[in-house]
Amino acid sequence: MKKVLLLLANGFEAVEASVFTDVIGWNQLSGDGSTKLVTVGTREKLKCTFNFTVIPEMTLDEVDVDEFDALAIPGGFEEAGFYQDAYSEEFLNIIRKFDQANKIIASICVASLPIAKSGVLDGRKATSYNLKDGIRQKELATYGVHVVNQPIVIDNNIITSYNPSTAFDVAFKLLEQLTSEENCNYVKKLMGF
């Protein structure tokens, strides 16, 4: 069984998290059955960007990175406190450990920013939120990242994307990398894509 750690910061965007739960869940129940997703939060109770409340299965202090095959991170809003949690040393250390083990790290929208802040994207290609005068892509560049203004950018083990519209594509790319293109296409078909 391939296990995905869904890393949630307070203020995360619910739609960006839900694509991972659904795609990995659909595969577990109707695809090849080889994946499982575990929600992990920076605290015992999290509030999403638009006030949806989530209770994760685990908190960061309970995580053993060796038990997981991939990391998935949804983005969030500064106004909802996303960066307070996402830029915490505890959050950044999880990212570093996954990268050191060369495990897949899949992110959506501004979730590339804590990945970059952790140092693992220095000198690598990535993208981030591309609207509002590219402010988040400019911030990404300050971490030594070669910013590419494309919907999805993959550099070795790290997947980044540039806004919420890419969410399903990132989740399917993660599933494909964990299983196979054939299985991913089967799950897409079952989900109506």
Score class of each variant (00 low, 15 high):
Met1Thr: 09
Leu7Arg: 05
Leu8Asp: 00
Asn10Trp: 00
Asn10His: 12
Gly11Ile: 05
Phe12Gln: 02
Phe12Asp: 00
Ala17Cys: 02
Val19Ala: 00
Phe20Cys: 04
Thr21Ile: 13
Thr21Tyr: 04
Thr21Phe: 04
Asp22Trp: 02
Ile24Arg: 03
Ile24Glu: 05
Ile24Lys: 03
Ile24Ser: 04
Gly25Met: 11
Asn27Cys: 06
Asn27Asp: 15
Ser30Ile: 11
Asp32Lys: 04
Asp32Met: 00
Asp32Arg: 00
Thr35Gln: 13
Thr35Pro: 09
Thr35Leu: 15
Lys36Glu: 15
Lys36Pro: 00
Leu37Lys: 02
Val40Ala: 14
Gly41His: 04
Thr42Ile: 07
Arg43Trp: 00
Lys45Ile: 11
Lys45Cys: 06
Leu46Met: 02
Lys47Leu: 13
Thr49Gly: 15
Phe52Val: 13
Pro56Val: 09
Met58Gln: 15
Leu60Arg: 06
Asp61Val: 08
Glu62Met: 14
Val65Thr: 11
Glu67Ser: 13
Phe68Gln: 03
Asp69Phe: 01
Leu71Val: 03
Ala72Asn: 08
Ile73Asn: 01
Pro74Ser: 05
Gly75His: 06
Gly76Ser: 07
Phe77Tyr: 14
Phe77Gln: 13
Glu79Cys: 00
Gly81Ala: 05
Gly81Gln: 05
Gly81Cys: 05
Phe82Ala: 02
Tyr83Phe: 15
Asp85Ser: 14
Asp85His: 02
Asp85Pro: 03
Ala86Ser: 14
Ala86Asp: 03
Tyr87His: 11
Glu90Ala: 12
Phe91Lys: 02
Ile94Asn: 02
Ile94His: 01
Ile94Gly: 01
Ile95Ala: 03
Arg96Phe: 00
Lys97Ala: 10
Phe98Asn: 06
Gln100Ala: 11
Ala101Tyr: 01
Lys103Tyr: 06
Lys103Met: 04
Ile104Asn: 03
Ile105Trp: 11
Ala111Ile: 02
Leu113Glu: 02
Pro114Asp: 01
Ile115Leu: 13
Ile115Met: 12
Ala116Gly: 03
Lys117Thr: 01
Lys117Tyr: 04
Ser118Lys: 01
Gly119Thr: 05
Leu121Ile: 06
Asp122Ser: 14
Gly123Val: 09
Arg124Ala: 04
Lys125Gly: 01
Lys125Glu: 15
Thr127Phe: 05
Ser128Ala: 15
Tyr129Lys: 09
Lys132Phe: 11
Lys132Asn: 10
Asp133Gly: 00
Gly134Ala: 04
Ile135Trp: 03
Ile135Arg: 08
Arg136His: 12
Gln137Asp: 05
Leu140Asn: 09
Tyr143Gln: 06
Gly144Trp: 11
Val147His: 06
Ile152Gln: 10
Ile152Asn: 09
Asn157Arg: 14
Ile158Glu: 07
Ile159His: 12
Thr160Met: 10
Ser161Thr: 10
Pro164Gln: 08
Ser165Phe: 09
Phe168Lys: 14
Asp169Leu: 12
Lys173Arg: 12
Leu174Gln: 11
Leu174Met: 11
Leu175Phe: 12
Gln177Ser: 15
Gln177Glu: 15
Leu178Thr: 09
Leu178Ala: 08
Thr179Val: 07
Thr179Ala: 03
Glu181Leu: 14
Glu182Gln: 14
Glu182Ser: 13
Asn183Cys: 06
Asn183Asp: 13
Cys184Ala: 15
Asn185Cys: 10
Lys188Phe: 12
Leu190Glu: 12
Met191Ser: 14
Gly192Phe: 10
Gly192Lys: 13
Phe193His: 10
Phe193Cys: 03
Phe193Glu: 12
